[in-house]
């Protein structure tokens, strides 16, 4: 049985898969844009956890370097996302995405 510090590798995979699915469901079901942001972050962090686990299991540092890339990009993404959200909040006084239905057909 393959383990990292006495914890089976499968558990790591399972945990990140569960976190990822929670993130996906959050994006699909929540209506508040900030919570959707948080769900997206959860998805990205599930990926980070998975990459770190694989990297540690294989003794290969490439996976951990990739995690740094993801963290840096996620930070940039949040900066842009929150800026967009602030602009929307100024125009509609709300962060509910149900208000954003101007574009149809």
């Amino acid at each position: 049985m393959s383990t990292i510090q006495a914890i089976p590798l499968n558990w790591y995979i399972l945990l990140s898969a569960v976190l990822f699915v929670i993130g996906v469901l959050g994006v699909l079901y929540r209506r508040n844009a900030i919570i959707i942001f948080m769900s997206v972050e959860l998805m990205l962090n599930a990926v980070n956890l998975l990459l770190t686990a694989f990297s540690s299991y294989r003794g290969d540092s490439a996976g951990q370097v990739f995690v740094f890339f993801i963290m840096a990009v996620a930070a940039a993404e949040v900066a842009v996302g929150l800026a967009i959200l602030i602009v929307i909040y100024r125009n509609t006084n709300s962060t509910d995405i149900n208000f954003l239905n101007k574009l149809k057909w």
């Binding site: 994006v27 990205l44 599930a46 996976g63 996302g81 602009v87």
Partner: peptide, 25 residues
């Protein structure tokens, strides 16, 4: 448009990254 593009783009990136992580594993 910006918010929809951003949310969908970030969402898609999540899938892409999870795929990359599994292939790396």
């Amino acid at each position: 448009a910006a918010l929809k593009y951003f949310l969908m783009g970030a969402f898609a990136t999540g899938f892409l990254l999870f795929g990359i992580a599994l292939i790396y594993g």
